[in-house]
Structure formats: C-alpha cells, structure tokens
Design a protein around this nucleic acid. Structure first.
Lengths: 140, 140
DNA sequence: ACCAACTGAGTGTATATGCACATATTGCGA
DNA sequence: TCGCAATATGTGCATATACACTCAGTTGGT
C-alpha cells in the first residue's frame, strides 16, 4: 500500500516534470556559460532586452512569464555589471524603461557561442524538442 | 539590425522555454496548494518520499534531478513542520535516511485534491502535454 | 595498521522566485 | 478640484537553486 499517491504524482504532475527539466537543463546551460559570467537566466533577460529596447519592468516581466518583483531583483546583478540601465520615463514618473547598454549587448554576443554549444548538446539529448517547444507556447 | 541575436534566443533556447514554463505552471500550482501550506516543490518532495522510504539525501536528489545541496536546504521547512525525518544509517555513519512521517503522509494526502484541480486546469491549458511529458523523460 | 582516494553530507555565498505589503503617481468621475 | 480607483514600482520575508569548499567517515591497497 506504500506510495500509490506518490506514484500518481510522479507519473502525472506537470509541474514536477517541468521544474525538473528546467533544473537539469539550467545546470547544463549554466556550466556552458560559466566562462561568460552569466547565468542562463541572466542571458535570457539580456536577450529579451536585445529584442526590444525601452521596455518597462512589468512588460518585460510579462514577456518572460516572471513575477514583476522577481525580475526587479534579477536586474540587480545585471545593473551592477553595467549591462542594463533603468531610465525614467518623461510621461510617467512612476515608470522606468529598461535598456540594454552597449556593454550588455557585447556580453550577450560574447556568450552566444557557448550558448549555441549548449543548444547543440541539449538538442541531441532531447530529440523530442521540436514537439515540446511549440506545445509550451500556449503558456504565452 | 536590432535584436537578431535576441530573436534567435527567444525562438530557440530550450532553457528559456522550460524555465518560463516551470515558472508559469509553478505559480498556478502554488496558488492551488496555498491552503495546504505546501509549495509544489515541497509537494513533489513529499511525493518522492511517499514512493520510496529510507532514501538517502543523494539518492533522493538524483531522483528529483536536483543538486544534493539544494535538496538539503529544501528539506529544512519540511523537517520543521515534522513532515520528514532524517535518521542515521547503522552501516554508515556518514549517511542519513530520509523518511516521510505519518504527519507528512497526511499532509500529502490532504493536499492531493487541490493538486488534482491544478492538474485538470493545466491539462486544459496545455493540450499538448501528452507529447511533452514522455519527451522530457529522456532527462532522467 | 596506515594512508590515500573516495564518498556522503553540511556550510558560505550568490542568484532566483513570488506573495503580501507599501509607496508613488496617474487618471477619472463627482 | 477633490478624492478614489487603477497603475507602476519597490521592500520584507520565505523558499528555491547550485557551485565551491569543508568535514567526517569508509574503503582498498600496501
């Protein structure tokens, strides 16, 4: 009688599966990026700012599927390194726009080769990825 | 010329996609479980211990795809609540075995209905899940 | 028996995550 | 204009994550 519930959770819990997968692949990417001094989370944040400049905190957080306050704190190490700048908005004294600095763009470009290596390695390890990526897009 | 690299990363980075998905669904499960006082991560840990008793820290961490030291710290709130106990191993004075207490098993069972609700809600939101779950099993 | 390599666990530090709450500002209706 | 709801951001707290390092105990070779 031991563990019927636990077994059900292991085989069916989507959160467990996704969190586990995120941990495993994050460690891999982080190792690949270690030379660059960026984590995969920081790399993703810089990439998001590279796509669109002058985003507000809330907008960027939405884009990353992340709580606003989490992003706020994730920006601290990036700001400390001078990769991201937070500028006031003329129209609205509450808001601030986030911009990728030249230094930030350079760091992103410099880390890109290591990222591509991790991509290639992972793509081999997860042959079913072409099915996964699109299927997860519904969460956007 | 702005953002070619950022665009490539957004469309292709597996870590970004998985981390994002994990964040989004975790918030959902956490909200569903809030009454129970468990996070989805804690719920998963209890479930793993429900499947197999007397696991060592390292074994359980491997099973969860988690760093050993992370699990060590994740166990603290569970131990504080009396859901998990760490017992010495007779054969090996270095090791300790983790056991789910009766209280822990009860907490897991009590949280299960809320978890099932989150499961049902998410299954509707991610119709492609039957493809995703098996495809991620390669990371085990 | 001894020592070296190995193994299992714990700690220091840094980052990541989000809820509850607080603050500041804007916009709008009475 | 006054006041209030809505909006944008920041902070306190708790948990989550993992690398580098440390320590204790085990194991195998001599």
């Amino acid at each position: 009688m031991a563990g019927r519930l636990g077994e059900e959770i292991r085989t069916q819990c989507m959160a467990q599966a996704l969190r586990r997968a995120a941990r495993v692949v994050s460690r891999d990417y982080d190792a690949a990026l270690s030379e660059s001094g960026l984590t995969i989370g920081q790399f993703s944040t810089l990439a998001a700012l590279d796509r669109e400049q002058a985003l507000r905190l809330g907008q960027l957080a939405d884009g990353l599927g992340m709580d606003r306050t989490t992003l706020n704190r994730n920006l601290e190490p990036l700001a400390k390194k001078g990769f991201v700048k937070s500028l006031p908005v003329p129209d609205d004294a509450r808001a601030r726009t986030l911009t990728l600095t030249e230094k930030g763009r350079a760091a992103l470009a410099e880390a890109a080769p290591a990222w591509r290596k991790a991509q290639a390695r992972l793509a081999k390890k997860i042959p079913g990825w072409p099915l996964i990526g699109p299927a997860l897009d519904v969460l956007r």
